[in-house]
Amino acid sequence: MIKNRTRKISDATLLCCWMLFSGILILFSTTIFADDLRPIYIEVEQIENDQYGVRIKKPPKVTEANRPSVVFPDYCQQLAKTSNVRLRAGVPVAVADIWMCRQSIDGEELVLRYPLFIVPNPAIVKVISLAGASYTIALASGDTRWEMPRAEDINGIAKQYTWLGIEHIWIGYDHLLFLLCLIWIAGTWKRILVTITGFTLAHSVTLALSALEIIKLPVPPVEAVIALSVVFLATEVAKGRSHSLTWRRPVTVSSSFGLLHGLGFAAVLNEIGLPQTEVLSGLLFFNIGVEIGQAFFAILVILLITLVQKIAGAKIDIKQWSQRGVGYSVGCIAAYWLFQRVMGFAV
């Protein structure tokens, strides 16, 4: 009787812990839904030999009162604000700020300044030269300074685009939850390795084809179907082990959906731009960054499951015991994303 009572207490404790975890996940999911960590996009474009136009696109959660601005070196002077300026190809484009500099700012440090406080969002800086060449610089969360590029350098591209890929996968919550479900279903180390490899190869193909504009699909429907893919896997997890194709051959499902997720990665890459003269290098290192981010996440999940299993003891299969909680929690979040994204392009 004492043993049974102890086991009941142990089960009740684990159940309470899991309910608390699910509650915290759902509570903080509103932050995830709001895309709080979407990057700030900054474009610095050389208009004339001595003039630069600056445009900044901020996510909704960065308030207008805290809209950042770019500060140039001391030998530059900010001109009066204007609503239009003639840029390359002679097209009038709205610009927030125009700076005139007595000398080139190549290699100089520019600063992103916030009126109130520094936000945790990462930033993507796109620099466009007078000749039309563009360069992309990734700023990590909290970074506010960057060096203006002199010319495209393979080492710089490798560093910037690898970091871009890592950062994107870690703030791409839909991709992470998809990976979590894949790991849950695959089970063993060998099956996890094969499943994630299939996902990687598949999304690498569509990432390359879409980034190089060989195939083109509208982004909103793609994002909606990615959310649907997470709902599908979460449902499979909640149902538990079965004879369905997903449980028998998870690599088939991961590869199929991987083609779709690659289009999502490409949408981000197309938005920030590839290097002008090192297109393939930028594409390669971005993909490498995505794979590094995936690998770290997978290892972290596996270690966490192993740790919780050791704490729970051999009598309780923690994955089987908690699979409904995981499935329902992930499914609710993904269903919200699906509704939000469908409404976004359907309205």
Rank of each mutant, 00 (worst) to 15 (best):
M1H: 14
I2D: 14
N4E: 04
K8P: 10
I9V: 15
D11Y: 09
A12E: 12
L14F: 11
C16L: 06
M19D: 07
L20S: 13
L20A: 11
G23R: 00
I24L: 12
S29R: 13
T31F: 06
T31Q: 08
T31K: 14
I32C: 08
F33G: 01
D35S: 09
R38D: 08
P39E: 14
E45F: 00
Q46S: 02
G53V: 06
P59I: 02
K61F: 09
V62G: 03
E64P: 03
A65F: 03
A65H: 01
P68R: 02
V70C: 06
P73Y: 03
S83F: 00
R86C: 11
R88S: 06
R88E: 13
A89I: 05
G90P: 15
G90D: 14
V91L: 07
A94N: 11
V95Y: 05
I98P: 08
C101W: 00
C101M: 01
S104D: 13
I105P: 01
G107L: 04
E108V: 06
R113A: 01
A123I: 09
I124V: 12
V125Q: 02
V125C: 01
K126N: 04
V127K: 11
A131C: 01
G132K: 00
S134T: 12
Y135S: 11
S141M: 11
M148F: 08
M148E: 13
R150D: 12
A151G: 14
E152I: 07
I154K: 11
G156A: 08
I157Y: 02
Y161A: 03
W163N: 09
W163E: 02
I166M: 09
E167S: 05
I169C: 04
W170Y: 04
I171W: 07
Y173W: 10
L176E: 05
W184Q: 05
W184G: 04
A186G: 12
T188L: 09
W189L: 08
I196T: 06
G198Q: 10
H203V: 06
T206Q: 07
T206A: 06
E213A: 14
I214M: 10
K216D: 11
K216S: 12
K216Q: 11
P218G: 02
V219W: 03
A224R: 04
V225A: 14
F232K: 00
A234P: 03
E236D: 03
L245T: 14
P250E: 05
V253N: 13
S254M: 12
S256F: 13
F257P: 00
G258C: 01
L259P: 04
L260H: 04
A267K: 05
N270L: 15
G273H: 09
Q276G: 05
L280V: 13
S281D: 13
L283E: 00
F286G: 04
I292G: 04
Q294C: 07
Q294I: 08
I299L: 14
I299F: 13
L300V: 09
V301F: 03
L304V: 15
T306E: 10
Q309D: 03
Q309S: 06
A314Y: 14
I316Q: 10
D317S: 12
D317M: 05
I318D: 01
I318L: 11
K319Q: 10
S322C: 05
R324D: 05
G327R: 02
G327V: 01
G331L: 03
I333W: 07
R341Y: 00
